[in-house]
Amino acid sequence: MAVLGENTKPYSLRKDEQCAQLCFQAFGTNCSLLLPYSENQNLDFISEQVVLWVNNFEQRYSRYLENSWVTKVNLSAGKNEVSITTEDYEVLRAATFTFFQSKQAVDPSCLPLTQLWQKAKAIKSVPNENQILEARNLVNWEWVEFTKTKIFLAQPGMGLDFGGFGKELAVDKVAELLKNQGYQRFLINFGGDIFASGEADKNEAWRVGIEKPNEEGQPAYVLKLKNHALASSGNYRKFFDMSKKRYGHTLDPRTGYPTIHSDLSASIISPSCLKSGILSTTCLLSGIEAGMRMIEAEWDTEGCIQSVNSSCTSNRFYDYVIYEKSA
């Protein structure tokens, strides 16, 4: 177990026969990186670089941390501008991409709604319509004003919450970091958000499983991935019951309520984990029919939407499948 410094996370680097595995905790989940052995590798160095990068990303963009940049922006809502760095500007552009790619189903300014429902869960009381409307009226990414140097949240009470896309963006950025360091073969897995680069072994793509809803640990499909990402969204595990009704954990900022499709899970394959993540969440919020149409309209993107009893797949999803669990 290694520790980089006081404020950074511990991590472990295990060296198996065929590859090294880096493990650490971030984004509230287990994170891992598989690196097949090759020449001129410095595994200790790259492990430190990855963990440090993720740590810095979380420190800056987590809304839960008092001293994060996002918290500073949220506390300045309606009052004053906050300066931003080049990296912040990139993240804000990714947030804009998220908002529009999801057709406003994922709104990075949804903090008022997120906080309302978190409080509701804690006190076990469903918010009333007025409370939801009040929170919804503070949620609109198009009211977030930012340039290359400054950001301003136009109304008091507005707030940024990058939880809807931050982890997936981090996967893409870590992949970019690894490629810039000369690594072409690796598998990143941040709590089920995955990017597979190159091959696991000679002429063998990386193998990744998609879980069947309500059957933990049982893969519905095993996929072969090469230079593609896989992200999944589902409410079958993360839900809460209140006032005799089941609510999924995915919030729809367009309605102000958690999704009604609480029994679905959506898994998307595309060249970007961010894009896969956005589409999987949007499919979950839109339902099977609209979700499938969305997937089919995208280039180099395949996916499946599962419920407990059925599974819908896009046209070329089976190009990636090497195993399917029979019904």
Binding site: R93, A94, F97, L169, D172, K173, A175, K275, W299
Partner: peptide
């Protein structure tokens, strides 16, 4: 028919309608 788009900061080229 689509157009090639640099999705930076997402490190991919996408094809948009």
């Amino acid at each position: 028919k689509r157009i090639p788009v640099d999705m930076s900061p997402v490190p991919i080229i996408n094809l948009e309608p």
